[in-house]
Amino acid sequence: MHPSNSPAGRLAAVGNQMIEIHLWLSAELARLRASLDTAGDARASRDLRAHCLTFCAALGRHHTGEDTGAFGLLAEQVPELRPVIANLITDHEVVAGILERVEALLTGDTAVPRTELRAELDGLAALLESHFRYEEKRLVGALNALTGRSGTAEELLGLAAPPHVSE
Results as ranks from 00 to 15, higher is better:
residue 57 A to L: 11
residue 57 A to H: 11
residue 58 A to L: 13
residue 59 L to M: 13
residue 59 L to D: 09
residue 59 L to G: 07
residue 60 G to S: 15
residue 60 G to K: 10
residue 60 G to Y: 06
residue 61 R to H: 13
residue 62 H to R: 06
residue 62 H to P: 10
residue 64 T to E: 14
residue 64 T to K: 13
residue 65 G to L: 12
residue 67 D to L: 04
residue 67 D to K: 11
residue 68 T to G: 02
residue 68 T to H: 12
residue 69 G to C: 07
residue 69 G to Y: 03
residue 70 A to P: 03
residue 70 A to T: 04
residue 71 F to H: 13
residue 71 F to Y: 15
residue 71 F to E: 08
residue 71 F to N: 04
residue 72 G to C: 06
residue 73 L to F: 01
residue 74 L to Y: 02
residue 74 L to S: 04
residue 75 A to V: 01
residue 77 Q to R: 15
residue 77 Q to A: 14
residue 79 P to L: 03
residue 79 P to R: 01
residue 79 P to F: 04
residue 80 E to H: 07
residue 82 R to I: 06
residue 82 R to F: 01
residue 83 P to W: 03
residue 83 P to R: 03
residue 85 I to G: 07
residue 85 I to C: 09
residue 86 A to T: 15
residue 89 I to Y: 00
residue 90 T to K: 13
residue 91 D to S: 12
residue 92 H to R: 04
residue 93 E to N: 08
residue 95 V to P: 02
residue 100 E to A: 15
residue 101 R to Y: 00
residue 103 E to I: 01
residue 104 A to R: 13
residue 105 L to M: 11
residue 107 T to V: 08
residue 109 D to A: 12
residue 110 T to S: 14
residue 111 A to T: 08
residue 112 V to C: 12
residue 113 P to M: 09
residue 114 R to P: 00
residue 114 R to Y: 00
residue 114 R to C: 01
residue 119 A to E: 12
residue 119 A to H: 08
residue 119 A to I: 01
residue 120 E to W: 02
residue 123 G to R: 10
residue 124 L to A: 07
residue 125 A to K: 11
residue 125 A to W: 05
residue 126 A to Q: 12
residue 126 A to R: 09
residue 126 A to W: 02
residue 127 L to I: 13
residue 127 L to N: 03
residue 128 L to Y: 02
residue 130 S to R: 13
residue 131 H to E: 07
residue 133 R to M: 11
residue 135 E to H: 10
residue 137 K to P: 00
residue 137 K to R: 15
residue 139 L to W: 07
residue 139 L to T: 03
residue 139 L to H: 07
residue 140 V to C: 09
residue 140 V to A: 14
residue 143 L to Q: 06
residue 143 L to S: 03
residue 144 N to E: 03
residue 146 L to V: 15
residue 146 L to E: 02
residue 148 G to L: 12
residue 150 S to V: 07
residue 151 G to F: 11
residue 151 G to R: 12
residue 151 G to K: 13
residue 152 T to I: 08
residue 152 T to D: 11
residue 152 T to G: 07
residue 154 E to Y: 04
residue 154 E to S: 13
